[in-house]
């Protein structure tokens, strides 16, 4: 029955052949004002994989994610998702493509005027004409998968941060998307929820044949989960490979990030005048 529901929803959400399921960025640059966030970045996401995008804070990970989902357009270069150049799509074409994507926001981004149940049901109500009984079945299945079936009637304000993220994950998978994009899925989760989310990401990826992209700076979790990963530094790719390859990467910036070292080319401190001179009031 669940398979039938999944198949029916997938048919509603997509009418594409699986051959074009791939994401590709070609020489993408993006700036805010005079500040270059991404500089000529190229990467590709193979179909059916769990791909990690890692890197220190402020290296352009979230910008990359927004480019991949068409929330912003690149200044130059191309972002190709499922064979479509996002820069050339109209709003309605972009929405058609997004019906095939799911995204987990860092803070959950649940609609605060709707209950947990209604939040998860929301995409189904917007995009399908499924009968209420079937919607209830799908929603409860997804909530059960994230361990929150019992919280169906709670409002988002009654949830902890970790619970809100799990509800958001249930909402992200309710349309059975082809791509699932996670923005820092492990931040703020307790060990039990983290283990559950990691297993869930892997299970969803393998059983439903999804393509998962995880933007995170949790090195240990990504090493266990990702098939392939990119390490971003200063708006460019510093290294790429399997987690094992990355762990042995000799590039100083990559070594510093993977091992969590304070000393290295990636500065922990934001540029500032001399500390002693500033404390003595000699400089501002």
């Amino acid at each position: 029955m669940d398979n039938a529901i999944n198949t029916s929803l997938r048919n509603l959400a997509t009418a594409r052949s699986p051959a074009d399921l791939v994401m590709r960025l070609e020489d993408v640059s993006y700036s805010v004002g005079n500040r270059a966030i991404l500089k000529g970045l190229s990467l590709s996401i193979p179909r059916g994989s769990v791909t990690g995008v890692m890197g220190p804070s402020g290296t352009g990970k979230t910008t990359l994610l927004r480019l991949m989902t068409g929330q912003i357009n690149a200044d130059s270069g191309r972002v190709i998702v499922a064979g479509e150049d996002l820069g050339l799509l109209s709003r309605s074409q972009l929405y058609t493509l997004r019906k095939r994507m799911g995204m987990l926001f860092q803070n959950g981004a649940l609609l605060t005027d709707l209950s947990v149940y209604e939040n998860v049901a929301y995409p189904l109500r917007e995009h399908t004409d499924l009968p209420e009984a079937l919607i209830a079945r799908v929603v409860l299945t997804k909530l059960q998968a994230v361990g929150l079936r019992g919280a169906a009637d709670l409002m988002p304000s009654e949830l902890s941060g970790g619970m809100a993220r799990r509800v958001a994950l249930a909402r992200a998978i309710v349309m059975d998307p082809e791509f699932l994009i996670y923005d820092e899925p492990f931040a703020g989760l307790d060990p039990i929820a983290m283990g559950m989310v990691m297993r869930l990401i892997r299970r969803l990826n393998d059983t439903l044949g999804l393509t998962s992209i995880i933007v995170s700076h949790d090195v240990a979790e990504m090493a266990l989960l990702a098939d392939y990963a990119y390490v971003l530094n200063a708006g460019a790719i510093a290294a790429q490979g399997t987690p094992v390859e990355l762990a042995g990467d000799p590039t100083p910036a990559v070594r510093q990030f993977m091992a969590g070292l304070e000393e290295g080319p990636v500065a922990f401190h934001y540029p500032a005048p001399d500390y002693a001179q500033q404390l003595l009031g000699l400089v501002r």
Binding site: Y95, R98, N107, P123, E126, H127
Partner: peptide, 17 residues
């Protein structure tokens, strides 16, 4: 506040204008 808490972006990502 919906914008600040990414709710509008979430709607966009759910293909809802």
């Amino acid at each position: 506040l919906m914008k600040a808490t990414d709710q509008l972006a979430a709607l966009e990502m759910m293909a809802v204008d």
